[in-house]
Amino acid sequence: MQEDKNNNSETENDDLYEHYRFVATEGQEPLRVDKFLMNFIENATRNKIQQAAKAGNVLVNELAVKPNYKVKPKDVVRVVLSYPPHENLLVAEDIPLNIVFEDDEVIVVNKPPGMVVHPGHGNYSGTLVNGLIHHIENLPNNSSERPGLVHRIDKDTSGLLVVAKTEYAMAHLSKQFFDRTTERLYYALVWGDIADDEGTITGNIGRSFTDKLQMTVFPEGDYGKHAVTHFKVIERFNYVTLVQCKLETGRTHQIRAHFKYIGHTLFNDERYGGDRILKGTTFSKYKQFVDNCFKVLPRQALHAKTLGFTHPKTGEFLQFNSELPQDILNCLEKWRRYAASSTTETLEED
């Protein structure tokens, strides 16, 4: 058995970091992966390993496996978790923050696209947390690299986040997110003309067995975590649709995975295939138009627009709204003009 412990993961995944790596020897007898790992990870329990596997955190040859997977000779077994194995990653940095609200208990910020929320593999500086610990002393810890955080959004998703400034606020807010009493509304531009004006997407979300960089929907509920997204159409542009999404649960990549599942991948979502033309015509003029839209909006079209929660001290329900960022506004305006011109051409032909 060869062991490579506490190494950086080479994956580009923003959420997972390698903590353990083992290579099965040529003489390895078939053995359940949970039993296999118990033999080599100090202080590990079988239950914890099984839970990690069920959550998609145990990979064999780069694919997530269930606890009953039988390890074979030369299998590469990795344990990856949502926090990096390094210590002392946090360095205070004077990073401008778009602060929407702040008092002694909480701070609400409007995160720009492209900013990573907390340090991790390949992003050890320039994150929101680096800026927060410069702005606020003694943020409460929930883990070594995520002080104050009770939720997060993806690097290329823009919008509102609430951060706890005290231990009490962290516990109070964490319970609200667990109990699903917060309000979170997102705006997303998705491929295709959604048939219904509003609806609900339900389906367990877990890490894909074939692509570890993606989350996927398991409609039978045999894997992943329960997830529910409510949506309402805001504006239609023939080949794409602007929707409002209300999260009932808060799973990793929930909106991105759910809308891909129903055939309406987010516009320019590279990880989920939305950076290709998924709906529309084959005319070169249209292709050029879409390419121009990709240049205007070089990320997935997703913005955390509204955030509501109960203030930990006052008990008042606070609601905050943010304007759509300029890159999304510019892209929407392009689609608006294109849809209008297409309609005009059709009417003239009639």
Rank of each mutant, 00 (worst) to 15 (best):
F267M: 05
G263R: 06
I95R: 05
I234T: 07
I99N: 11
L302C: 10
P84A: 14
L31N: 01
M115G: 02
T157I: 06
K295M: 06
P30C: 07
P219S: 11
L185V: 14
G273V: 09
H135D: 07
H118L: 12
P113C: 01
L63Q: 14
D196C: 07
Y186I: 07
A92N: 12
T182D: 02
T265F: 01
Q300N: 08
I194H: 02
L302T: 07
F36K: 07
S9K: 03
E348A: 08
T344G: 00
N47Y: 07
P73H: 12
Q51D: 14
M38F: 00
Q319R: 15
G206H: 06
T25P: 00
H230Q: 14
D156S: 09
S9H: 05
L347P: 00
F289Y: 06
V108C: 12
Q254T: 10
V23N: 04
V23T: 15
V117A: 09
D156P: 06
I49D: 02
L161R: 02
L185C: 02
T265K: 03
P84D: 13
L302A: 05
V80R: 01
V150N: 01
L297N: 04
A169S: 15
N268K: 04
H311A: 13
E42F: 09
H226E: 15
K54P: 00
T265C: 11
